[in-house]
């Protein structure tokens, strides 16, 4: 069965220079197992094709049932230089929640 990440997790995103940070928090332990397995750096990079032009790094925070992603070369030069409407990547956590998962 396919579900959207939105159904099992929430999160928040922001900027770190030209990189965006996206923290994703699973709603429960079962959800954390799913995102740990399925939110690979490759899958996140593919999801953000045309938005993220650099490397994707992934970090785990199991106590918070959370994963943190750093998407390099993503914000059009960073907060003050960027011409993007969302220059600080504030809406990118929501963009990741669009991802479809197999459960």
């Amino acid at each position: 069965m396919k579900i959207k990440l939105l159904e099992i997790a929430h999160g928040r995103s922001g900027d770190k220079g030209d990189a965006a940070n996206i923290g994703i928090i699973a709603n429960d332990d079962k959800g954390f197992e799913i995102i740990k397995k399925q939110l690979t750096t490759e899958k996140v990079k593919t999801h953000f094709e045309g938005i993220c032009f650099g490397e994707v790094e992934r970090f785990e925070l199991p106590n918070l049932r959370a994963l943190n992603f750093l998407l390099h070369n993503t914000l059009g030069g960073g907060g003050t230089v960027s011409l993007k409407h969302d220059a600080q990547g504030k809406t990118l956590a929501a963009a990741l929640l669009r991802m479809e998962l197999d459960v």
Binding site: R12, D15, K16, N21, L61, A66
Partner: peptide, 16 residues
């Protein structure tokens, strides 16, 4: 838990 956790993962890099 959820509102605090969201802030904890905000604008961080390597959490360690």
């Amino acid at each position: 838990f959820a509102t605090v956790a969201e802030q904890l993962v905000y604008e961080i890099g390597d959490p360690k």
